[in-house]
Structures are given as structure tokens and as C-alpha cells.
């Protein structure tokens, strides 16, 4: 565990906490894409299938449980909680997210490190995570009304991706045989998707204006 990996995990954790805070305390999910949250729930469910069979550390298992529990509870809140679900921007959040799953599955079947059940699903989760933010970014553009918590949530998620790239670079130079091309490329694609958001986030921050994305 290096400092970049830890910083990445902590910003990821913080992003989830910010979102839960918004949903749990303010009882609002305005501006949050249910499509993206459903994709994240599938990402974690397929990636952490090995939670019972592969033990790395108590830290890893605990974090897996937190990400699984939080992603499914966020989906539950947005779909079924009587107050929260009324704040969901249903009409704006129209990205056809299920269509992202088939190409990701096909790609995982074609390009993987090892052709086993767990490994293909792990790879599928990497590809799906790379594009899972798309419905959220589309919703942001459409609503044009981005509150601070939603902006911070996406900012922290992007930060998590950035720190993971630094972690991979660090590990590549410090650990022999540490080469994971698929993880790196999927992670890089994912981070590039945030790059656009970051650009407008900093622009609005610099001009001291409310975050607004171009149509």
C-alpha cells in the first residue's frame, strides 16, 4: 500500500460519503444519475464476487463491503425511499445505460488477462466502470443546475481515478512484474472522461461562478 493508493481509496470513500450525506441528510438526490449508480452497483457486484474466496487484507475486505453496501443502498434510496425518490430527475436521466453492458461484456470475453469466470467478470467490471460515469455527466449537462454536493461528489470520484493512476506509475517503478495493461487502459479512459468535467469545474471555480457545462 503506497500513499497514492491510500489517497485514491480515501477520495473514493469520501465521494460515497458525500453522496450518502446528500441523500440521507438532505433527503435529496437531485442531479444524481440513478443510471450511473445502478452501473456502479453492477461494477462492484461483479468485481467483488471473489470477496469470499480471495483474501488480501482486512482493509481490502472492509472496503469491498463498504463499496458494495453503499452502492446498493444508494440505488435503493433513489428507487424506493418515499422522500428521496421524489427528488430524482427522472425525465432528464434518460441515458440508455443497459446498452453499455453488452459491449463491455463482449470486450471482456475477448480481451482479458485470463479466461476464467472470475477474471472475465473482473475485467467486465473494469470496462463498465470506465464508462459508468457517462449517464451522470449527461445529466449534469441537461439539468444545468449543479449543487455543491453533486459537484463535489464527481470531483472526488475523478480525484480517486487520478490517484489510482499515480499509484500504478509508482508500483510499476517499485515492484517487479507489476504490469496490468487492461486495468491501466480502462482506468486511463475513465479518467479522461472526467478530464472534461474537471476543466469546467476549475473554470467555474476560477471565475467564482456556479458550475455549468456546455450543451
Amino acid at each position: 500500500m503506497n500513499i497514492f493508493r491510500l489517497a485514491g481509496d480515501m477520495t473514493h470513500l469520501a465521494s460515497v460519503l458525500v453522496l450518502l450525506l446528500k441523500i440521507h441528510t438532505i433527503k435529496s438526490c437531485a442531479g444524481v444519475s440513478l443510471k450511473t449508480q445502478e452501473l456502479y452497483a453492477i461494477v462492484f457486484a461483479t468485481r467483488y464476487l471473489d470477496i469470499l474466496t480471495s483474501f488480501v487484507s482486512i482493509y481490502n475486505t472492509l472496503m469491498k463491503l463498504i463499496f458494495l453496501g453503499s452502492s446498493f443502498s444508494i440505488v435503493w434510496y433513489m428507487k424506493y425511499h418515499k422522500t428521496v425518490r421524489r427528488t430524482y430527475d427522472r425525465d432528464q436521466d434518460t441515458f440508455r445505460h443497459w446498452f453499455l453492458m453488452l459491449p463491455c461484456l463482449l470486450l471482456a470475453l475477448l480481451i482479458h488477462e485470463k479466461f476464467t469466470f472470475f477474471e472475465v467478470l473482473w475485467t467486465f467490471s473494469l470496462y463498465l466502470e470506465a464508462v459508468a460515469i457517462l449517464p451522470q455527466l449527461v445529466l449534469l449537462q441537461r439539468t444545468r443546475n449543479i449543487d455543491n454536493l453533486t459537484g463535489q461528489y464527481i470531483f472526488l470520484l475523478g480525484g480517486y481515478r487520478g490517484f489510482y493512476i499515480l499509484n500504478w506509475i509508482y508500483r510499476y517503478f517499485t515492484e517487479p512484474h507489476y504490469v496490468h495493461w487492461i486495468t491501466w487502459i480502462a482506468g486511463l479512459v475513465q479518467t479522461l472522461l472526467y478530464a472534461d468535467f474537471f476543466y469546467y469545474y476549475f473554470l467555474s471555480w476560477k471565475n467564482n461562478k456556479k458550475l455549468q457545462l456546455p450543451a
Partner: peptide
């Protein structure tokens, strides 16, 4: 063997 790759990241 059918052993899985070691995934130590989240």
C-alpha cells in the same frame, strides 16, 4: 492451473 490472478486493488 485454474488459480485466479491476484487482485490486491479495489
Amino acid at each position: 492451473s485454474e488459480s485466479e490472478l491476484e487482485h490486491d486493488e479495489l
